[in-house]
Nucleic acid binder design. Structure first.
Lengths: 208, 208, 208, 208
DNA sequence: GAATAAACGAGACGGTACGTCGCGTCTTAAG
DNA sequence: CTTAAGACGCGACGTACCGTCTCGTTTATTC
């Protein structure tokens, strides 16, 4: 390994202080007004210590706010719709928090421009979310609720993609009835796709 | 009127050159690397001429790339699913174009921060899109395909929100089969919500 | 010329404020502790306005403190020694001032590294000083005090080079008796060189 | 002794490597562009090993390039002028070397700011130089060439101060004829001052 | 036609954050 | 206690871009 032969090791207090200061300042002033100098000063840390760890302000903020926030355990309500509703409610609380609403749009523009950060986002945050969908779908298949399986990424997209668009692109207020509707629509959509991929040829899904 | 008492009128060649240069430069270097000075130089125009027309770089880029691109006429395929599929295919072509993929993430972060631009975005671009959904839903209700009506904004969100997330947040490649799946899922979701709001208790076709 | 076709002209108040602020801050904190941000803030000016005018902090300080400070008229005492003594006393006052003692060493290290600045220094400041020596020598020759002429640059070096070394390299205190000695020695040296270049072969200047 | 109570003794190869690397790098990139990290890497040494020996980058460079270069034995030509000429020629070779021309200006600015280094410079390097002048003057007095004695520091200043100014402040090329002139002028100046301090009224060696 | 008034190209302006760099110090593990 | 490696706090640097502001000039409309 490279990091261990000689040399002063990274000080974990510095790691912690940087992330803590980042979180506090995002809460106080919002992401766009966040400056690296501010973070350094508030954390009692030099700017070099920050840039030694993160390639940009955006990566720092991403790690501070989104990375390794463990998902809560799944509800296990016994039905696909119940599971999805519980899941989307959990995410809604998280995604609609003021800090997230400020950070997400900026992060989105950064992901488009910063491949390393995008990879990191895909591999950690997103993968954890999709794993939750995979488990819910698996259970529904086992229960016989779904005729076939379905790509968890598609399920994730149908439910949380719509929610993310509403929150971060359209900047709409999202209340609980709306979340409920999203869960219902996603359940129907997932069911339809599971039927379809199972062999049903009806492209146009014509009734009857 | 304000624009009419004396003075030299705006030069329409300037309008055109600004927008043209903006489009070309976004294609070349992407929105984030776009600078107003660059646009001015490339258009053979002073910066003041730009700021006389647009309040910010983001508004300029928005107008140059998204505004007043008239929606094509609806397909009128005779079924809800057919109409939605035609619509999402049209949008997919537009939204997945390189210029759009570069601009959209930056625009998203700007909308979150710039209320005037957000209002403008909602009132023009978004309203036109939702009107298309309203018409499709209306026709489906008239045909008896839908048990009740449904908020066009929700329909828009289910179909295009998912697509936008895939393209602009997750930066995924999106191919036609995926678009087809999205249309199928949205059709099912819209149908379920229409049933639900009409009074029918069968949420996700739950037994009992 | 380039500076006049179109464009907002440089604001002379900005020029003045920058130089004024530079002078004040050098007096307050000394040159080494001077920062460009300080100057910008104190002058009510953006940093870009400074860097548009000067390539570096050192050039700014040079222009602010040394450039175009007109030489006082020559004394015209009627003798070479008297003229040189008057001249060196004038320079001593100027060169031993605290601001000069702080700036000069830093400027010296900058001149060695910055050819543009060196050229500017040679052509303006130094040339004016040497012109004064040229005139004094010319008058001495006219009076018959000197057997031949002598390069003013050499005369300048003999008198002010020694003084500059004492002040800026050796950091010695220099009092008036010492200045007087320098003038006496320079007078003798100039006289000897004038004899020598006039044809006298006595390399070793052996007495009589 | 302090260096003797237990522990690992200093490695003399480290001393040598540091100074050697410093000299090589100054030759390559010049003093201002020299960094301590560079020296450490090039010498295969930690930065701490450098700062345990020298208080600053400037002191390190000073020791590496100027310190303990023993003066060559004096020429003993039998005349004041001959001795001074031999001396200045020796110094000229040394002072005009590329490494010296690069280091000196930076050292000058450091001496002005760093009293410890200045003291060290005065007590070692400068004192040795002035001792040489003292001996030359003493011999000249003994030979009867000088009417009285003269402060060796003043003699040093007249000859080498001028030379240093030419080389390090004015950045002039200095050739042998110019060195010869400096020696002649210094001889005349020293002679005049010796007369003057001896009681002779002839200020500028007024013609007898 | 002369006067008015706004738009024009050019580019300087204040402000602000960025990311880099170097210094001199400190902290490891190894010897 | 010294070593090599390298992280640390600090703080200045020079760059970049934004959106505004002045110039002197051009171009319609209104008297």
């Amino acid at each position: 390994m490279k990091g261990q032969r000689g040399g002063r090791p990274r000080d974990s207090r510095v790691d912690h202080n940087i992330l803590q200061a980042t979180r506090e300042l995002i809460d106080e002033v919002g992401y766009p007004a966040l400056t690296v100098d501010q973070v350094a000063a508030h954390a009692g840390v030099g700017k070099a210590a920050i840039y030694r760890r993160y390639a940009s302000k955006a990566e720092m903020a991403f790690v501070a706010t989104m990375h390794e926030q463990p998902l809560p355990p799944l509800a296990g309500t016994g039905s696909l719709h119940g599971d999805l509703l519980a899941l989307v409610r959990t995410f809604h609380v998280r995604m609609a928090a003021p800090a997230a609403r400020q950070l997400a749009p900026a992060l989105i523009s950064e992901l488009a421009v910063n491949p390393e950060l995008n990879t990191r986002f895909q591999d950690t945050f997103l993968a954890a979310e999709q794993a939750a969908f995979a488990e819910i779908i698996e259970q529904a298949v086992a229960r016989g609720e779904l005729a076939g399986t379905i790509d968890p990424a598609m399920a994730h997209l149908l439910l949380l993609g719509s929610l993310a668009s509403a929150l971060y692109i359209l900047n709409l207020p999202v209340d609980d009835p709306m979340v409920t509707d999203l869960a219902a629509a996603a359940t129907a959509g997932i069911t339809a796709l599971a039927d379809r991929h199972h062999g049903d040829p009806g492209e146009a899904a014509e009734p009857r």
